[in-house]
Simulated scan of single mutants.
Amino acid sequence: MGLYNIFNIAGSGMSAQTVRLNTTASNIANADSVSSSLDQTYKARHPVFQAELAKATQGQQQQESYSVKVQGIVESDKPLQKEYAPDHPLADADGFIYKPNVNVVEEMADMISASQSYQMNVQVADATKSMLQQTLRLGQ
């Protein structure tokens, strides 16, 4: 694997972490939403990542290229919060309101993790760039 492939790997990692950050931000933004039915209640969402190995053959050489791919975004299957609030304007006929299954503490920890993963990919790309520049200086 050449140094140029590392830019593709780091770039796909940054794209995947951006999706993770956006999904987490959406979960946090909807954490306090309320609805009158289970069907309309926001459910926490999480991205599913897939490590992708693509093998291409060029003549006798076999070249491996790795990347990170977002396979999809799934809704959490944790139970929604049901709260008795008969005075609430969105209460159903039985006096219940429904809140999302978002745990803000877990989401904040996930956001910190995604941010650090993104930063690590940036550092990998910077280190690769530096190595390539030093390699070019050797030829002078």
Score class of each variant (00 low, 15 high):
residue 25 A to T: 12
residue 93 A to V: 14
residue 15 S to Q: 13
residue 96 F to H: 08
residue 27 N to A: 05
residue 122 V to H: 01
residue 22 N to Q: 12
residue 111 M to F: 06
residue 8 N to Q: 12
residue 98 Y to M: 01
residue 116 Q to F: 05
residue 122 V to C: 01
residue 115 S to M: 09
residue 1 M to R: 06
residue 18 T to H: 12
residue 21 L to K: 04
residue 42 Y to L: 11
residue 105 V to S: 08
residue 47 P to W: 04
residue 17 Q to W: 02
residue 135 T to C: 07
residue 53 L to N: 13
residue 34 V to W: 04
residue 138 L to S: 05
residue 65 S to F: 12
residue 93 A to S: 14
residue 78 K to P: 05
residue 128 T to H: 00
residue 117 S to L: 01
residue 10 A to I: 02
residue 89 P to R: 08
residue 58 Q to E: 15
residue 39 D to A: 14
residue 49 F to C: 08
residue 121 N to Y: 00
residue 72 G to D: 12
residue 135 T to V: 13
residue 13 G to E: 02
residue 110 D to I: 03
residue 107 E to Y: 00
residue 79 P to H: 05
residue 84 Y to F: 15
residue 51 A to V: 13
residue 44 A to R: 03
residue 31 A to P: 02
residue 83 E to V: 15
residue 131 M to I: 10
residue 95 G to M: 03
residue 47 P to T: 05
residue 48 V to W: 09
residue 129 K to G: 01
residue 89 P to Y: 05
residue 128 T to Y: 02
residue 39 D to G: 11
residue 31 A to G: 04
residue 91 A to S: 08
residue 22 N to Y: 07
residue 136 L to C: 01
residue 23 T to K: 01
residue 128 T to N: 03
residue 34 V to F: 03
residue 51 A to I: 13
residue 82 K to F: 09
residue 4 Y to W: 12
residue 21 L to G: 02
residue 20 R to E: 06
residue 126 D to Q: 11
residue 74 V to G: 10
residue 1 M to H: 13
residue 79 P to R: 02
residue 94 D to M: 12
residue 130 S to W: 11
residue 127 A to R: 11
residue 73 I to V: 15
residue 16 A to R: 01
residue 18 T to A: 14
residue 17 Q to K: 08
residue 109 A to P: 01
residue 9 I to S: 07
residue 97 I to C: 00
residue 37 S to I: 06
residue 57 T to Y: 13
residue 102 V to R: 01
residue 5 N to C: 10
residue 40 Q to D: 15
residue 25 A to Y: 08
residue 110 D to R: 04
residue 99 K to G: 02
residue 117 S to V: 00
residue 93 A to Y: 10
residue 101 N to C: 06
residue 136 L to R: 03
residue 37 S to N: 12
residue 80 L to R: 02
residue 51 A to S: 14
residue 108 M to R: 09
residue 50 Q to F: 11
residue 98 Y to C: 02
residue 88 H to V: 05
residue 60 Q to E: 14
residue 22 N to I: 11
residue 124 V to L: 07
residue 91 A to I: 08
residue 16 A to L: 03
residue 112 I to G: 07
residue 122 V to Y: 02
residue 4 Y to K: 13
residue 22 N to H: 10
residue 135 T to H: 06
residue 49 F to S: 02
residue 140 Q to K: 09
residue 19 V to T: 08
residue 7 F to D: 03
residue 54 A to T: 14
